[in-house]
């Protein structure tokens, strides 16, 4: 999070200040990549670029605080991911239904790697093995740093439903991690 300087940074970026845009980009790009790569493995970079293009074009129409900005960027990202899925389905060149994306092996599949430390990429890949609606809720909560109400607004679910999905996801992760010795070793963030 950028913090108290966010309004000034946003105003400067809206007026075309490259450095200010760089601050916004560096703050959100890692989380965007993690979120998008979980749903479209290998396409995260492209989808993030599309997301930023949309965001830049509409910057002057945005008003709100940092949390609202974050939620807006992830809403745009989600639309990009869904659009891509629709496009690829229509053109029959990549028939990957969105619901099945999380069943694909991620680039850094934790189940295939014996690790004593886990990267953020491997952690996200592990989360992506959850049922898609659970995975998305966890990613938006943990990776994007959004709260229940924000996730509910982005996904079109009721807050209570978001809580239930998150709860189920945590339990499922606990079961997976206790059953899979390969990912049970010491795990650390970076």
């Amino acid at each position: 999070m950028i913090g108290p300087s966010f309004p000034a940074v946003l105003a400067a970026a809206t007026n075309g200040d490259e450095q200010a845009f760089g601050v916004l980009w560096r703050d959100l790009q890692p989380a965007l990549l993690r979120y998008l790569n979980a749903f479209a493995p290998g396409a995260g970079e492209d989808l993030a670029s599309e997301t930023w293009l949309r965001v830049v074009k509409a910057l002057d129409s945005f008003s709100g605080d940092e949390r609202a900005f974050r939620a807006w960027v992830f809403t745009v990202a989600r639309h990009r991911a869904v659009d891509r899925w629709r496009r690829t389905t229509r053109h029959h060149d990549e028939l990957v239904p969105l619901d099945a994306l999380t069943n694909l092996p991620a680039p850094d599949d934790p189940a295939g790697t014996a690790v004593d430390a886990i990267s953020s990429q491997a952690a996200v890949a592990q989360i992506a093995t959850l049922p898609p609606d659970q995975a998305e809720v966890v990613l938006l909560r943990v990776v994007a740093g959004l709260d229940v109400a924000e996730v509910a607004a982005i996904t079109g679910k009721r807050p209570g439903n978001v809580r239930v999905l998150a709860h189920r996801a945590l339990r499922r992760l606990a079961q997976q991690l206790s059953e899979e010795p390969r990912v049970r070793g010491p795990v650390r963030g970076r």
Binding site: I118, A123, I127, L173, A174, L177, R184, V187, R188
Partner: peptide, 12 residues
């Protein structure tokens, strides 16, 4: 392990 995993996912 879930706590470690989620901390890794949210790492800088």
């Amino acid at each position: 392990e879930v706590a470690r995993l989620l901390q890794a996912a949210a790492a800088p």
